[in-house]
Write a protein that binds this DNA or RNA. Structure first.
Lengths: 350, 350
DNA sequence: GCACGAAATGTTATCGGTAACATTAAAAAT
DNA sequence: ATTTTTAATGTTACCGATAACATTTCGTGC
């Protein structure tokens, strides 16, 4: 690597002071045209741009927001990241993605790194954050000394920061009511691991909705599982092989679309015809939903909107000194496709 | 926000000099236990960690690698990013993702931002980089003054930097030969937009492979399209409606798995039975491939391995002053699933 | 009790850039 | 031509952290 040019190099080579170089870089008007051109030529020759670190030191702003999430391999998180990046950019900030392991506590080293880099704000996203095990509260306590924090996740523990979450009630109510209206009575749920509060919360909400409609809340209709497609396969296999055929559910609600993907595969493998023999609803409305066979009905949590709010509130908290915590909830939406037979008309089921 | 504690604040509050604080932070042994504890208490109380920007200024290293890619919404790029993040971390660096628009030139502002932030290296990934229109050569010329650059993309223009790419020949040869061996003779290709060199290169390679096997290279079997699932749908519709039924291909190779997803949907909609009436092969071996119906045979380009090499070579270039350019090619692999009927045995087709 | 070496701690220049302030050069007014 | 005003440019302290170097404190031996 060649020696990286600094403002001193540019100043020396152009025969001016560093102040003049700064003026040229920032487009200050009080510079003679001849001088400006002379300096600009040297700048161009070295592709010089002022060091962000030095500016940070001077101004106390890194102009950077951190997004902390489980690996972006999951399309739900991809959507959050994309929106955060766009929204940050719109406000003159850059978004920096930090990945953590799902179901593991937030590493202390990561928190320190965020402080070291003097982020202007952090967004934590993901279902697991609400658990005590994640250590989110501790992380928050440390980060609070240096930057505002927003979390996009269900509110199981009351935390003193910007809290944005989707409405878990509508998230369960929408698919259950939809299936009920189509005549389904035995509705099952294959969900994320129960050891985590928020996901079990989804399970609880689901049960409540069933009871509200006087539908059977048989524990056999609720299988605990992971989060990926393979978990969906396994969950379906486990549930159906554990039940006499006449007690099989007529509809399955999956924790997310990946699981639905696996469920669909497994159901077909067992010789069922979809959606006639079994209806399915996923969650997250991922890009592949229109392309499953049958196309997958899914709940959209509107991660983009939540993220947009998170970024904005973070910046508000930075500027003004908002001390009181902020909370916002976004209703979910059901995107109806063919996987429940909705478009094929109503059919009475027992 | 409370005032962010600096090393001076810690030093004052602990009643020591900044040098001692640094020693405690870095675990230097020449500190009395009593002093260490006293300082550590103050550090803990403020969650203090030394500013990375100040350290950067002092040491001249940002310990950061930039990954520049089209929006990470595409799973292929997700895989690259994930691997870059992991590999960078393993070397004590952090990876920072910067997104750009597909098919648009690299924004000048982005290049300047990378220079401003004094990245220790940049990786450009994506099919489009090889085109003259992307302005990659210009960006490279500017970045070169401050950091080493690696590109993960097909080599259409010879660039003086670390170049890593998948073997486009095997990428076309594998699916064509596989289909040929299964008895297919009329093989079609639905591909990314021809205006970009590298993707058209895929098309050219495809034609060469057909000719090498004495198969018809009818232009009607080659439809230009976008990159997403919807493009796949449209491409299939356009191709088949433009051909008499008896001239329909018996197999389709798609530019990527998303397109294959769309193609499958469209083919089913047209009443075809897969894989009997039409075989399909995608590219990228994305997570949903095992879950399409039928499960999708796909070409894996091994983006993880390429990324790993990119990160490593970047760091080598940083340490030693490697001046000559580096080039590496990775063979592709065909992941056989049911979408060509491969597992259903050989069937003669005319 | 003093000298000496080692251990502990402090002082300061530096990294790259900025902005307030100081100075010089040029243009305008007398 | 000289003063006044304004425009152009330079000087310098500072941001936070570090490391080389300087200094102080301590423990040990005599």
């Amino acid at each position: 690597m060649p020696k990286k040019a600094t403002i001193y190099d540019i100043a020396r080579e152009a025969g001016v002071s560093t102040a003049t170089v700064t003026r040229v870089v920032r487009g200050d008007s009080n510079v003679r045209d001849a001088t400006r051109e002379k300096v600009q030529r040297v700048i161009d020759a070295h592709a010089y741009a002022p060091s962000a670190s030095a500016q940070h030191l001077e101004h106390g702003q890194s102009k950077t927001l951190a997004i902390v999430m489980p690996a972006v391999i999951n399309p739900y998180f991809t959507r959050i990241y994309n929106e955060a990046y766009k929204e940050a950019e719109a406000h003159g900030y850059f978004a920096w993605l930090f990945q953590i392991q799902e179901n593991k506590p937030i590493p202390r080293e990561l928190v320190d790194e965020l402080i070291r880099r003097r982020m202007d704000g952090v967004i934590f996203a993901g279902g697991i954050w609400s658990t005590e095990r994640s250590g989110l509260a501790d992380a928050l306590e440390r980060l609070r000394h240096y930057m505002p924090v927003a979390i996009i996740c269900p509110p199981t523990v009351k935390l003193d920061c910007i809290c944005i979450h989707s409405d878990l009630v509508s998230c369960s109510r929408l698919p259950v009511r939809h299936l009920h209206a189509l005549g389904h009575r035995r509705i099952a749920f294959i969900g994320g691991s129960m050891q985590f509060r928020d996901t079990s919360k989804r399970g609880e909400n689901f049960l409540e909705e069933l009871r509200a409609l006087d539908l059977p809340d048989d524990p056999a209709y609720h299988v605990d599982a992971g989060y990926d497609a393979e978990s969906g396969e396994r969950a379906v296999l486990r549930m159906l092989t554990g039940l006499e055929r006449r007690r099989w559910p007529t509809a399955i609600i999956a924790f997310n679309d990946q699981m639905a993907l696996g469920a669909i595969k497994q159901l077909k493998q067992m010789g069922l015809h979809l959606p006639d023999d079994m209806a399915i609803i996923g969650c997250d409305n991922q890009f592949f939903c229109p392309y499953t066979d049958p196309p997958l009905t899914s709940v959209d949590l509107h991660p983009e909107e939540m993220t947009q709010s998170a970024v904005r509130e973070l910046l508000v908290a930075r500027e003004g000194n908002r001390t009181q915590s902020f909370s916002m909830m976004r209703e979910a939406t059901l995107i109806v496709r063919e996987s429940c037979g909705a478009k094929l008309g109503y059919r009475k089921r027992t």
